Each structure stands twice: as structure tokens, then as C-alpha cells.
Computed example of a mutant assay.
Amino acid sequence: MAEKSKYKRVILKLSGEALAGDKGFGIDPETVESIASQIKDVTECGLEVAIVNGGGNIWRGLSGSSKGMDRATADYMGMLATVINSLALQDALETLGVPTRVQTAIEMRQIAETYIRRRAIRHMEKERVVIFAAGTGNPYFSTDTTAALRAAEVEADAILMAKKGVDGVYDCDPAKNKDAVMFEKLDYIEVIQRKLSVMDSTAISLCMDNKIPIVVFNIDKPGNILRAALGEEIGTLVGGK
């Protein structure tokens, strides 16, 4: 079935909030299990999958720094939050029989591998899911930028941006404006110029420079991860053909 897909290797970008379910904070085991089940469906189609998690369900670096905390310290705390989410997702995937490796940008050998590009690629070639944790290992960079950077490094065919509560990218906030219009396709430069909430500008620029398409879709609808991975017309496509 992989032959029918537009892509062979994809990066799935999950927000921390996606793992929290309706609670909005922490980790909801049922939600994590549901996401893991959808990821298993993707691997069973023969696609190679890597994942980048956010950590906003546990801690937001920007929120901490806005309240007086040192920005670098707040960001490092956010990186550790992504490791917690990654271990939870790894456990759910392996419970379903999906071999999974967590690779962290900050060395913590007792619980995860240290990120090595060639090893990550080899894991995917052996049909293992790789979860990239701890961001880029540097403060001031978002997990969006991590997804763009890792996608370029492992030569992923696309980034699948899973959004909670929205079907794609809109010209304004659909929660505040019922007349908001969803885009089916956008150019990278258009996202930057319009300041649309797809990824931050650093991440978008990385994707533009490396010609990595971004599929923005609603994770709340079961089966959407597989549909996005197979290249079906879903949500909003940024870049690509």
C-alpha cells in the first residue's frame, strides 16, 4: 500500500495539547492510545515514520519566561516536558507491537538514545518509529523548528502538522469568526507574509529552503493521520505539488 502513497518517509508533528485530550493539560492515556493506534496504521502501510512532540500540556517555556523566569531555563524545562510526552507515546506504541526508539537532543542515556542522524535513518529503514525529543537541544527554538530541522536532516518527504480542533489553515481564527475561510493550498512565502498560524517563521523558512511540504490537518478526526500520510487531499497543503 506504500506504493499508493505520495510519501515514503514522514515526520508527524504533535502538539503537547494533542496528548492531553479534553483535559487540556497532562497526559490522557486513552488519547495517547488512540494516536498510537493511528500511527500503527501508517506503519502497516509501509511508510517510515518519525515524530516530534510538543510539551505544552506540561510546560510552556514562553509562558514561564513571560512571568520573569530566565528564558533559557524555561525553554530547557519545556524540552524535558517533550521527553515525558515521548516516553508516554513510546510506551503506547510498543504496547501495540510497534517497535519505537526515542532519541533526545539532550543526552540522557538511561532513558533514551542520544540523537544521531544516521542511526535515526537506519531505525526508520528497519521499520521502527523514531520519536525526536528535547527539541533541538537549544533554547529559543520551538518544536516546530525541531520538526523542520529533523525533516531536512532525515530527508523526510513531508511534515504532517496535527492540529487540535481545526481542519487546516484559515485566513483568520475560526473560533472567533464563523466566516473564516480555510485554505486548501498555500505557498511558504504566503504563510510568512500573512503571518498565518502554521509554524513559526524559522520553521517555515527551513521548510521553504529545503522544499519540504507541510500538511496541516485535524487530529481530532480518527483516521486523519493515515489520510495525511497517504497524501490524500486533507486539510491545508503548504508548498508541495
Score class of each variant (00 low, 15 high):
residue 207 C to M: 06
residue 101 R to S: 09
residue 102 V to C: 01
residue 97 G to W: 12
residue 215 V to M: 15
residue 147 A to I: 00
residue 44 E to G: 02
residue 170 Y to R: 03
residue 203 A to S: 11
residue 34 S to F: 11
residue 222 P to Y: 05
residue 153 E to A: 02
residue 141 F to G: 03
residue 197 S to V: 12
residue 63 S to T: 14
residue 171 D to F: 11
residue 17 E to L: 03
residue 215 V to H: 09
residue 50 A to G: 13
residue 4 K to N: 13
residue 106 I to Q: 03
residue 169 V to Y: 00
residue 56 G to A: 10
residue 241 K to F: 12
residue 166 V to C: 02
residue 219 I to P: 00
residue 176 K to E: 14
residue 22 D to T: 13
residue 54 G to I: 01
residue 50 A to T: 09
residue 110 Q to G: 12
residue 114 T to P: 07
residue 165 G to V: 06
residue 114 T to Q: 12
residue 155 E to C: 10
residue 1 M to W: 15
residue 174 P to F: 02
residue 241 K to S: 13
residue 25 F to C: 10
residue 37 S to V: 02
residue 188 Y to R: 05
residue 101 R to Y: 08
residue 116 I to C: 12
residue 16 G to S: 10
residue 90 Q to H: 12
residue 218 N to E: 03
residue 191 V to S: 01
residue 230 L to P: 01
residue 140 Y to Q: 09
residue 97 G to R: 10
residue 152 A to W: 09
residue 116 I to Y: 09
residue 123 H to D: 13
residue 106 I to H: 06
residue 158 A to Q: 01
residue 151 A to R: 02
residue 155 E to K: 15
residue 21 G to H: 04
residue 11 I to N: 02
residue 83 V to F: 15
residue 231 G to C: 09
residue 81 A to D: 06
residue 216 V to C: 11
residue 123 H to W: 11
residue 33 E to G: 12
residue 90 Q to V: 11
residue 52 V to C: 07
residue 104 T to W: 04
residue 218 N to F: 01
residue 224 N to A: 04
residue 125 E to A: 12
residue 136 T to R: 04
residue 72 A to K: 13
residue 157 D to T: 07
residue 185 K to H: 14
residue 123 H to K: 08
residue 55 G to Y: 06
residue 154 V to K: 00
residue 21 G to Q: 07
residue 26 G to H: 07
residue 241 K to Y: 13
residue 5 S to R: 09
residue 184 E to S: 15
residue 213 P to F: 10
residue 21 G to A: 10
residue 15 S to D: 05
residue 21 G to S: 10
residue 93 L to S: 04
residue 146 T to V: 02
residue 103 Q to L: 14
residue 85 N to S: 08
residue 98 V to L: 08
residue 193 Q to N: 14
residue 240 G to H: 09
residue 194 R to H: 12
residue 172 C to F: 05
residue 79 M to Q: 06
residue 112 A to F: 07
residue 181 V to L: 12
residue 23 K to H: 14
residue 31 T to Q: 14
residue 196 L to Q: 08
residue 82 T to M: 10
residue 66 S to V: 05
residue 35 I to T: 02
residue 75 D to P: 10
residue 174 P to V: 10
residue 77 M to D: 07
residue 54 G to F: 06
residue 187 D to E: 13
residue 192 I to C: 01
residue 134 A to H: 02
